[in-house]
């Protein structure tokens, strides 16, 4: 028996560890360090219909136990991802979750339809929560009705299950979660980054050229845990939790509040081996806690 096995819509995960979108490119860089087949799944960088250059630099700024980023969804565009990035990943035994971004419903639908047909794409992650582009989805992510309608439109064309990635930059996250569930979402991924700003100590102006950026890393974990805790009590679809995961203990926390798997973002920059290290540490963590299998931990804070 594989103690770490998790079954989710479209995804048979050999373990719950998934590199988060935008923090792992399309896998090639981290493939230099370890066998990517070791991972539960991979969330690839947001893909848009056309090539996007993204925001001016500086695009990142370090903060206390975290970082701000305003990359601006830079990616080589749908055609390139289909022709090069996804085929390269086929040599690994790992399901791909394609992060889909756009400006209007029509872009999302076009990308979702095409990318869901790629053989190794087992699920979509609808990015309605990027805080770093003027019209890049967050307008969908902060309004329940738009979120629900977009989910339904993408569901209608996708060949694989659709997960919707929620923004923490809302007053009532449970409301958005319920809306995307009603729209037909197969699962929820959360959280995307929290909008923040860091000033240059000398000039008093923002360090990031975009002004604001999205906060990630260990600093955001308490916020993410609280939000997963709340959403898991309000929906019946599975949650992939993220926000500050860097250790096996962090993974246990996310599972405890109701996530079924976790994504690891910023921590990859700090330690390129963080994902395999967490995977290796999980069985012992389960022993310490007295659980047979990982799925026994899911939702234990609610019991």
């Amino acid at each position: 028996m594989n103690r770490l096995q998790v079954e989710l819509p479209g995804l048979s995960l050999k373990n719950p560890i998934i590199p988060a979108s935008g923090c792992f490119g399309f896998g090639q860089e981290y493939g230099q360090f370890y066998d990517l087949s070791k991972l539960g799944a991979i969330m690839i960088k947001a893909t848009t219909l056309e090539t996007r250059f993204g925001n001016p630099t500086p695009r990142v700024a370090e903060t206390a136990a975290g970082m701000l980023n305003a990359i601006g969804l830079q990616n080589p565009g749908l055609e390139h991802v289909l022709a090069h990035e996804l085929p390269w990943l086929e040599k690994y035994d790992v399901p791909i979750i394609a992060n889909v971004a756009g400006t209007e419903t029509a872009d999302y639908v076009a990308v979702a339809e095409a990318i869901s047909k790629a053989p190794n794409v087992h699920a979509l992650e609808l990015n309605i929560s990027c805080p770093n582009v003027k019209c890049g989805g967050i307008q969908f992510g902060t309004d329940p009705k738009s979120a629900s309608d977009l989910t339904a439109a993408v569901k209608a064309v996708s060949d694989v299950p659709v997960y919707v990635k929620l923004s923490p930059n809302v007053t009532n996250i449970a409301e958005i979660a319920k809306a995307v569930e009603a729209g037909g979402a197969d699962g929820i991924t959360m959280i995307n980054t929290l909008i923040g700003m860091r000033l240059h100590p000398r000039t008093g102006k923002p360090i990031i050229a975009n002004g604001t950026g999205g906060l990630s890393g260990p600093a955001v974990k308490p916020v993410a845990i609280r939000m997963v805790h709340e959403v898991s009590r309000n929906v019946n679809i599975p949650i992939i939790g993220m926000g500050g995961v860097a250790t096996a203990e962090d993974v246990i926390d996310f599972l405890s509040v109701g996530a079924s798997a976790v994504a690891v973002g910023t921590a990859n920059f700090v330690d390129p081996f963080v994902c395999p290290n967490i995977i290796d540490a999980l069985p012992q963590k389960l022993d310490e806690l007295g659980y047979d299998k990982l799925t026994d931990v899911i939702g234990r804070s609610h019991r």
Partner: peptide
């Protein structure tokens, strides 16, 4: 020189025109 995230080409932090 540019501010970096990953340092290995994965995060698109250090891109130039």
């Amino acid at each position: 020189e540019e501010r970096m995230g990953c340092g290995i080409g994965a995060c698109f932090a250090c891109v130039c025109n």
